[in-house]
Each structure stands twice: as structure tokens, then as C-alpha cells.
């Protein structure tokens, strides 16, 4: 095989690789748009370097606005999010942490956060992945449930008090009856004693 042929072959190989990379890029972009879960990737310093469509929706920040922001700027619990990232160094994955996202219009949205660490081949930390789940409905449901349980508990406590009162009355009446029966018995005995005497 002469040099020209080798170059041609290599060029063809590069062309094919470029095509595959372009296909992969399209695939990733499509997937990024499709996934309904807000996902973002962070640099090792906690700077946002990429967000998907769903993340843009929940945060109300466009791609250009979100990228470059420190992640704690988007959360109400700034200290907690920093702690989560620090803990990831050891744990590598953290799931279902309840936090609050502050959207661009300053809406507070409760989310469940899952995070994992990104490492390159030589095990250097190259960033983090975060995935969020909007738990507004779940939280609302839980709050509603807590409210209902509190109300029912209150109602039950009222009923218990009523029952206790009835119980006290019943017991009191029974005691009184026992006392009266005793009294009757004593009187009867006295009466019988008088008759005999």
C-alpha cells in the first residue's frame, strides 16, 4: 500500500468518525430535550456548565442564563447544597434530598435532588451531575394529609374527652347505685332487726 492510499484510508476513517460523532451529538441533543427530568452538570467548583430543557423550564432560566451560575445561587438552602457536593467526594451518589429551587421569578419550588460525582479515567473529579424532581404535588399532598391527620386527631381527642366524660358519669352513677344498694341493704337489715326485737 503506497503512502497516498494510506492517507486516503485515514481520511475516510476520520470522515466516518466525524459522522459518528455528529450522530452522537444529535442523539444527545434529542435525548436532552426529551428527558422530562431537570438535569444539570456542574464543574468541580459547582458552576453550572450544562442544563437540559426540563431544567430550563423549572428554573425559568434559559441555557445562556443558567450556564456559568454557581449552583447555590439557584437553591434556597445554600449551605446544604454545598454540603451535598462536598459529601459526594466520599459517597459518590446522594439521592432524594429535599431542597428548594428559587426560579427566575423567585418562585420557591420544592424538589427532590439526586446527585452523582463525575470522574475521569485517572479518577480526578471533573464535576457533578444533578437531577431534580419537582415534588410540589407530593409536598402539597403530604401537607394536606398532615392537616387531615391533625384535624382527625383533634376530632378524636374531642370524642375521647366526651367518652371519658360519659364514662365518668356512668361510673359515678354505678358507684352511686352500689352505694344506694348498700344503703338499702343496711336499712333492710336494720328493719329486720327491729322486727325481731
Amino acid at each position: 500500500m503506497d503512502l497516498e492510499e494510506i492517507i486516503k484510508q485515514k481520511e475516510e476513517e476520520i470522515r466516518r468518525l466525524n459522522e459518528s460523532l455528529a450522530d452522537l451529538e444529535f442523539y444527545l441533543r434529542d435525548l436532552n430535550t426529551l428527558i422530562p427530568i431537570p438535569v444539570c452538570s456542574l464543574s468541580p467548583l459547582g458552576i453550572i456548565i450544562d442544563v437540559n430543557q426540563a431544567f430550563q423550564m423549572i428554573s425559568e432560566y434559559s441555557l445562556i442564563e443558567a450556564i456559568g451560575k454557581p449552583i447555590d445561587a439557584l437553591f434556597l438552602e445554600k449551605k446544604q447544597i454545598k454540603e451535598i457536593l462536598n459529601n459526594l467526594v466520599e459517597k459518590e451518589y446522594i439521592g432524594d434530598e429535599e431542597l428548594t429551587i428559587i426560579s427566575k421569578s423567585e418562585k420557591e419550588i420544592p424538589v427532590s435532588l439526586s446527585a452523582s460525582i463525575r470522574k475521569e479515567r485517572e479518577k480526578n473529579i471533573i464535576g457533578y451531575f444533578l437531577a431534580l424532581l419537582d415534588i410540589s404535588e407530593r409536598k402539597k399532598f403530604r401537607e394536606e394529609l398532615t392537616k387531615q391527620v391533625t384535624e382527625r386527631t383533634k376530632e378524636l381527642q374531642g370524642k375521647i374527652k366526651e367518652l371519658e366524660k360519659i364514662n365518668r358519669l356512668t361510673v359515678g352513677r354505678e358507684l352511686k347505685m352500689i352505694e344506694l344498694k348498700k344503703e338499702i341493704k343496711t336499712l333492710k337489715e336494720e328493719l329486720n332487726g327491729n322486727k325481731k326485737g
Partner: peptide
Amino acid sequence: KYSLITKMIMKYFFS
């Protein structure tokens, strides 16, 4: 912020 290449080589930005 938009560059795919930058995102791909962001792994070198750890220090």
C-alpha cells in the same frame, strides 16, 4: 456556554 467542544473538554478544567 454553548460550545459542545468546550463541554467535551471541560473535564480538563478541574484545576
